[in-house]
Design a protein around this nucleic acid. Structure first.
Lengths: 337, 337
DNA sequence: AGACATTGTCGAAGCGCTTCACCAGGGGCG
DNA sequence: CGCCCCTGGTGAAGCGCTTCGACAATGTCT
């Protein structure tokens, strides 16, 4: 293993000089810097992470807590995780993966052991158990999602209220009068995950404002759940012509079921999905959708953490503006028969 | 921050004693052990990870390299990643997430910096760039997937040859004579990812052995690709009655397309999927499938790494036996008209 | 009873790095 | 000209832990 001392000897300088070349915390003459950098490259030196963490009291690691749940859309989680990792690398940080299996105490362990110097929480619930611990340990943190009381916390999320409203507006603009929101699994609502409730709130409010008669139904994953939900809605409100779907796992089944019930998309009914663009593009017909900016959410979370490390106060909400892309699944409401 | 020295003072022993209590590397009297353990709990002590890594030259971290690609089935990756993380925790280890964006040199960086003391590689290609580096640095490693030359490496994977054969056998047993394998995206084959080619080989060989006329087509994600693939197969070989599908992303679209072409499942055609049980159960009809034991793959990889750390030679292939579960999507071949 | 293991504890060295305090050598300034 | 203040470099302390060797205090065997 190559150490800093060896690099120093090789370059004919003192260890501290090498350290300062690497960290850039002191001005170094052009000449010595180059000499040192050449030695580093030549010897293939990489600083020892542990030693660095010990001496500097910072580990350059971000801990990422992901949920174990399966009722969330996994690819979105993954996309966020990957965006976090690549952004972190850009700042010279690595990412430690924590699952919620270990329980909320993982927060304490990580903070106390100095394994990471910041935490990103995904899939935040309204009353999340981890948040009191976070406040107590005073660890640097960013949340993806909104808890009930976000005061003093750094939060990043899509503006789901605006998302629900945007979808309702789109359908209203197209002349639809009866609309339905097909949401996430019931367990998600029971858990009081913020995004689902916020979407619903935004949707309801805007639908009411636009004079739409509206309906909301949760929907589990899988064919059974999806077709059951659709047929119950159609039975209850046969004149529903606008659907907003916030449930990627059920999407193909919902479309299939609509087709089977004799409704053509978009001629008879319109569908607006809340999903990643990729999913919208891979459906048939391609879906009008409000996209979930997974990459940006991950990137922003890391950037906020880095600003926080630099002493900035980053607390507050960063709500990303939703954008709706019209594709083939929505169109003017059919004239009443 | 609580240090080991503080614990020692609190318990009235020397720091080394506390260390030995924690590591268990020396015998300690019942009495002192209890006293120390109480102090640890009382003070809420957690060893500093960096200091520990520096002194012991082991970080208790496993690096997990996951691919950035989107043509693999993401939920399976995630399931493996989660299984790895929870198993690692059981051994007192944490998991560092690396994406392939950083390139193969990430392997070198991690090994040299002592950030992790073992690496798990996912999505291994037949001629993987990371493998030479792995051999060169001599880092402890486990691969999920098989490279072309696995000699000296510790590999874990589903036995995909047996998987292909098993699916062919199942269809043959049911009396089907013309079968087709609908595989992963073409890019996966072009990249020479082992699992796709091995499934194909096993399928071909067993189909030939059982006297089946067989066909293979890659298939991209999304509706377009799926329905195109199906209709081309049906056009080319209209009497195909058995389908093996190794492409989760295309699965719902394929089923839809079959229905649309007037083929009932399982009355007219049988479908065997190679996918996680969850996907098979959420389809309609529920799919006969060979499951992908994602959890076990992750678990085994970690266990092998731990054995390796204990000095065992774990090199060689660990191929998990595939199991086929018959559900609603396969049945006896229809008698020829 | 003496020699010899065994057991439980301690002290100190040192892992590789950062960072503080210090110093030498030039300017620029009044 | 003397002063101070930059700039670029060094030395050494110390971060919190592991681990080796030393050493009492026991027990065990002839």
């Amino acid at each position: 293993m190559v150490t800093l001392a060896q690099v120093a000897r090789h370059a004919g300088v003192s260890p501290s000089t090498v350290s300062y070349v690497i960290s850039g915390k002191r001005s170094i003459s052009q000449e010595t810097r180059l000499r040192v950098e050449r030695s580093i490259a030549e010897l293939g030196y990489h600083p020892h992470a542990g030693a660095r963490a010990l001496a500097s009291n910072r580990s350059n690691v971000i801990a990422l807590m992901i949920p174990l749940r399966t009722d969330m859309f996994v690819p979105v989680m993954m996309e966020i995780a990957i965006a976090i990792t690549t952004t972190a690398r850009r700042y010279g940080h690595d990412v430690l993966l924590l699952t919620s299996e270990e329980g909320p105490s993982a927060v304490k362990r990580i903070a106390a052991s100095g394994l990471a110097d910041a935490v990103i929480l995904m899939d935040v619930e309204l009353e999340d158990e981890r948040i009191p611990l976070l406040r107590q340990t005073g660890a640097a943190a960013a949340l993806i999602g909104l808890p009930a009381d976000p005061s003093g916390l750094t939060c990043v999320d899509l503006d789901f209220e605006a998302t629900g409203a945007l979808a309702a507006d789109h359908l209203a603009d197209l002349g639809h009068r009866e609309v339905a929101l097909i949401g996430a699994a019931e367990s998600v609502y029971r858990r009081h995950t913020g995004f689902a409730e916020r979407t619903l709130a935004g949707f309801r409010q805007q639908a009411a404002a636009r004079g739409l008669s509206h309906l909301h139904r949760p929907c589990g994953a899988g064919h059974e759940a999806a077709s059951g939900t659709i047929s119950r809605i159609l039975q209850e409100r046969p004149h529903t012509t606008g659907f907003v779907v916030q449930n990627e796992a059920a999407l193909p089944h919902l479309l299939g079921q609509l087709r089977q019930s004799g409704r053509a998309v978009p001629e008879d009914v319109s569908v607006v999905a809340i999903c990643p663009d990729e999913v919208a593009l891979h459906s048939a017909p391609q879906l009008t959708s409000v996209s979930i900016p997974a990459q940006e959410m991950g990137r922003r979370a890391v950037e906020l953490l880095m600003a926080q490390a630099g002493g900035e106060d980053t607390s507050g909400l960063t709500l990303l503006r939703p954008t709706l892309t019209m594709r083939e699944s929505s169109g003017p409401a059919a004239a009443a028969p």
